[in-house]
Design a protein around this nucleic acid. Structure first.
Lengths: 159, 159
DNA sequence: TCCTTATTGACAACATATTGTCATAATGAC
DNA sequence: GTCATTATGACAATATGTTGTCAATAAGGA
């Protein structure tokens, strides 16, 4: 059976390979920027998600927001607690699901990393054009959304 | 020290988080598509890189083309050999750097996956517009290129 | 209320990727 | 040709992520 890709699908395929490359480069950049502060890309992302939340959230809540598995975030969060960047505080609404709260140390490192990230992203984005970046974001969001729809398991659909 | 992000940098930051999300979704899709054939996203990518090359290449060559570490590709290639999808053949130009060659089994699975990927990418890309996909690719390539420049270690520069 | 189901964190197994070290092979400067 | 440097694969340690299982907790419906 001969199946040919549309010109769009050819472009999509190239784009996907580029996303894999860029993902790797961005993780390297994240490691490079946060290494002096004792963080890594993964830990920074979790700590940042904690910071962005308007109220303290549990591991499971953070994982859903980040699009990672619950266990991946759990392990990183445990690491962050071990490093003294966050505490698990009792949740009045749930005995098991403790709430993640940054420590003083965690807040301090977040302020430092905010400065570093601002300088870095200013330099990285300079001259590309806000409109082009937003267009790009929209295309990627559309692709992600289509993937999510395709990936829904039948069991989930019935449920 | 107060540092503010430009509007462009805000858009860039959003875009980066979306790239992380999408990368995860695409890996899930790759696993889903290749699972019936005994492959995974990582193994598919390496096997596909082998296929795309105009002549047999070594692990180190594949790794540079893919933008992954040499050792990551080495381990996956060893897995592929263990599964009988590739063979390491003697390289007349280099004793240690064996050349990766797909087996009959590997070629067969590559033909099957090509059909699956074509259908999948046709559906995924439909209606987005080739021009938009190409624009998106260009932006991501520009960002990757800037990351690579920023990430070059001084030792590498001097060398 | 009671019972079924879903959520949550702990634990474990595994896949994927980086980094570092080592010994050997290839390359290049002189 | 010699010798320092680079490239390569093997091996190991570690970081990051998924999946599966389990027990305890929460939530919701009959």
């Amino acid at each position: 059976m001969k199946i040919t890709r549309t010109p769009e699908a050819d472009a999509m395929t190239e784009l996907i390979l580029e996303i894999f490359h860029l993902n790797g480069q961005l993780l390297l950049e994240g490691d490079r920027l946060t290494e002096p502060l004792g963080l890594t890309s993964a830990r920074w992302q979790v700590l940042g998600a904690v910071e962005l939340a308007s109220h303290p959230m549990s591991v499971a809540q953070i994982s859903r927001r980040m699009g990672l598995s619950r266990q991946a975030v759990q392990r990183v969060a445990n690491d962050l607690e071990g490093q003294g960047f966050i505490n698990f505080e009792n949740n009045p609404d749930h005995v098991r699901a403790k709430l993640i709260v940054p420590t003083k140390k965690g807040q301090k490192v977040l302020r430092k990393i905010a400065v570093i990230q601002a300088k870095w992203s200013n330099a990285l984005a300079k001259g590309i054009g806000k409109a082009r970046l937003i267009d790009t974001l929209e295309v990627l969001t559309e692709i992600k959304s289509r993937c999510e729809i395709m990936n829904i398991k039948p069991s989930k659909v019935e449920a």
